[in-house]
Design a binder for these strands. Structure first.
Lengths: 338, 338
DNA sequence: CCTGGCACTCGATGGACACGAGTGCCAGAA
DNA sequence: TTCTGGCACTCGTGTCCATCGAGTGCCAGG
């Protein structure tokens, strides 16, 4: 177990390094922090911290920088979450209040988060897995062609064209629409398959094939749309730590372009509470020198999706965590209102 | 007027510089191109080209690089459009054929274009200004709340919530839905306002306010959605020329995040034919060291939107133009089929 | 257990210098 | 008039080397 003072030294190292972006030495530490001991003592502590793997030196005769393990300890034990100032909170609310639809909410959130944290923001669209069906609409486009429109309680709309095996009359379609909606409206996506299972049987022989086709497309849409979408922003902020360029920034940009990677990244975050993944804790190689701060958000008690930021491991964790948490909270409010 | 040989020298300079990314000197030029004259002669030609402003030298005693004006001449007079190889064409078609809906088409196009040109790709969603209405759907969510869903012939779906001034019956809603659709289906967006102008008057007194509200929301949606969306991809390709400029990459990333800027950029492109804007020809400051190659695409004869790439002024213009043109052509085909 | 002192390491900084690619100019040849 | 070979000059690049100083580890003494 590390002594109280050594933890204090680690905290000081992290804070200084995050501020200056330069390796921090024993002398500078004692000058900038009231540790009450001499540089030599700090040096001993640093040697101990290095033995334990919390800090490292880039080269002999340079200062120390925190390792991933060091940041991990800092986040877990030494740092709180820095709450936002009142003006900041008010600005968030004002900015998000202006949104007109779901796309707009997500877009504004991403910009807001990028601006607040000065890092790359990632916001997942509200998930459909826990969503319920608000309405299913069927539109006849041509005799044997139907457009299926699915509307969810989070305000999302998805549409698919369905090519029917046989022409279908307006009456049959209206009938199907009515019966379908009476069964699935208000139900969860996951419950839909068994709720519509026996629906084809209740139709005339000639329409059964069509009904089955439409239902198949509906189920397919539900599954496909469970693979969720997301929006990112603030990539220009990557250039702020351009010293490491372009070796570092390139794989990050590549990772950010692969939605699959990002979705997995957010998926790994805990459902409740904040998740911080530091450096090599991220499975994806390109993100080994970045940290991810993510949190779930939702309109009610349950988290329906996640949002977060991606930045250098050398980031202001308390501030970032505060901003992420605050934004998630307000977005949840906005979604609940609409 | 420049002599034939001097133009040939300029072409050689552009080609070499694009290939090597290094200033090109007179000796290297005569070695790599069969100009049939000595380095000294080339030097004189280069001096003339520099006087005219087509090339410049970064410092004394370095080779020459093309200026924006030089690239302009190259694109206008010296370079053709390099057609893609047959395997490339086949790959494009295969890749685009797999798309399931509009989002997917645009997403695939962006990835394809980024990969082919190894630059940043920008694809505008098919425009609504020239689109027609395929269907308008009205759904009662609660007594005084209606959801308006607009479906366009390009497959886009937009929805809005409408808060009605008074409760509205299912019958009135069905009535409005039927009358509205009979008037606007198949019509252009721009024609809709006058087509529905007198619609409220034909309703009962008690429903008029509601009808007006719904129509207002519809018109609003039409206008709002005319402000078009777009998708970008391949930003990681920016790092390919990051050696020059962490200084350059930042404003470019910033510009790319502002959809307004990009939309204006594409908007400046000619409706038909290919548009190439080189360096300072771009109005936006952050893009002063990039070139934009854009072209319109559409399902029929008319261009419904634009797509293009953003890259360094030092790009392979013939190849890029060929890829952009080919992709636009195939996307048009895909859209026409669906 | 803390502190001051001391020798040592090693990256960063900057000057001196040689190298070479590339230029401009000029006189003579075609 | 146009092209060519030659020549002196410029200037950015790379190398070598000496210096500097921040920072370290270790040790003896309080």
């Amino acid at each position: 177990m590390l002594s109280e003072r050594r933890l204090e030294v680690l905290r000081a190292i992290v804070q200084d390094y995050v501020g200056t972006e330069e390796p921090v030495g024993s002398k500078a530490l004692t000058e900038r922090h009231r540790l009450g001991v001499s540089p030599a003592t700090v040096r001993n502590d640093m040697a101990a911290l290095e033995d334990e793997g919390y800090i490292a030196q880039p080269h002999t005769s340079a200062g120390r920088i925190p390792t991933d393990k060091g940041y991990r300890l800092f986040v877990d034990k030494l740092a709180g979450v820095k709450p936002l100032s009142t003006p900041e909170r008010r600005a968030i609310q004002n900015f998000l209040d202006g949104a007109v639809d779901l796309d707009d909410v997500v877009g504004r959130t991403v910009r807001l988060l990028a601006q607040l944290t000065r890092q790359v923001a990632v916001v997942q669209y509200p998930s459909l897995t826990r969503s319920t069906v608000r309405h299913v609409e069927l539109l006849s486009m041509s005799p044997a062609r139907v457009m299926l429109v699915l509307i969810t309680d989070t305000g999302r709309v998805e549409q698919r064209m369905v090519d029917c095996p046989a022409p279908v009359s307006e009456e049959s379609l209206a009938d199907l629409r009515a019966r379908l909606n009476s069964r699935v409206v208000g139900r969860r996506f996951s419950d839909v398959p068994q709720l519509v299972q026996d629906l084809p049987e209740s139709f005339e022989q000639e329409d059964r094939a069509t009904v089955s086709t439409v239902l198949a497309t509906l189920l397919e849409t539900l599954v496909e749309e469970t693979e969720e979408r997301l929006m990112i922003g603030g990539t220009a902020n990557l250039t702020r730590f351009a010293h490491d360029f372009p070796l570092t920034i390139r794989p990050v940009l590549e990772a950010l372009e692969e939605q699959v990677v990002l979705l997995k990244l957010l998926g790994e975050a805990k459902d409740s509470g904040m998740t911080v993944r530091i450096g090599h804790e991220n499975a994806h190689e390109g993100l080994n020198s970045t940290s991810v701060v993510a949190v779930g958000y939702g309109s009610g008690d349950e988290a329906v999706a996640k949002l977060g930021v991606v930045g250098p491991t050398r980031m202001d964790y308390p501030g970032t965590m505060g901003a992420v948490r605050a934004v998630a909270r307000y977005v949840g409010q906005i979604l609940a209102e609409s």
